[in-house]
Amino acid sequence: MSDPVDSPAAAEEARAAAENFRTNYERIRAQVCEAMVGQADVVEGVLTAMLAGGHVLLEGVPGLGKTLLVRSLGSAVDLNFSRIQFTPDMMPADVLGTSILVDTEGGGHELQFQEGPLVANLVLADEINRATPKTQSALLEAMQERQISIGRRTIKLQEPFCVMATQNPVEQEGTYPLPEAQLDRFLMKLVVDYPEEHEYREILMRTTGGSEQELEPVSNGPEIIAMRKTVRDVPVPEAVMTHAIRLVMGTQPGREWSPKLIDECVALGSSPRGAQALVLCGKVKALLDGRYAVSSDDVRAVAPAVLRHRVMINFHGMAEGTTPDAVVKAVLDHVHPGA
């Protein structure tokens, strides 16, 4: 039951939290953009995913600055950052950690557990599709449960925990496509495109000169956690929630809200994780837009990045040249807010 006396105070507090969120966000973004030229959508997407408490998959041809973006973020936020370069001969123990034999003071030996690079706040999984499915699967528990289990030992990962993985869409030789279970764990899949002409000039000026850009940390772990809490506090109206659900159901073949293209060309639609991701990313979007509740437009704006990797095209769709982005667009055209 609402308290008429406290309501204005609570509203004032919410407004302050939202304002704080926007300020911190802008500070981090500006710092990242010191090193990263252009790619505003990708930078926004990465920050959105991090603040929504999810993981990001960055896809793009080599040389577009995917790794640089994540490294810059690691520098801009004072977090424990680690990088894993995935290779075909990498084993799960290389990611999670293993027990090694160490010398003791008395001249003896003992097994001591050494944490792997996954035990960090911000993990850059570079070229994740070069590792075998066995090693890729080592990330599953960490990404969903925020913990890793090695033998009888379970290590709780420290918050904020965020995996930012990159993959190359063209060099498919010697790579292993990510399994659906792992893809579903990524909150967003961002496609990094080629820069514009004026961005090329800026890139050349920054990278071919004598000085190198040094980034200062402008935020830290507790601030990120507070921002995540603010995001969670944003309310979602019933109509917006219904719209998000219908968008997700629209990607599933044979459902009431799916257009004809989905029935023909999609083998597997989005899971409920897709709806969760839509709402969470919509909350961040609403806060950045200066609103205190999520709107249908917010959900629709993040839908391509949230749903594209959760849709599996079938053979018919592949033969027709249907892309996941086209599928998501068809769903957005078919499902209207307030319908």
Partner: peptide
Amino acid sequence: EFLGTSTRSGFMEAAV
């Protein structure tokens, strides 16, 4: 919608 709810959070109040 938020006006119709009995308990409103700070964000709901701010949205109203």
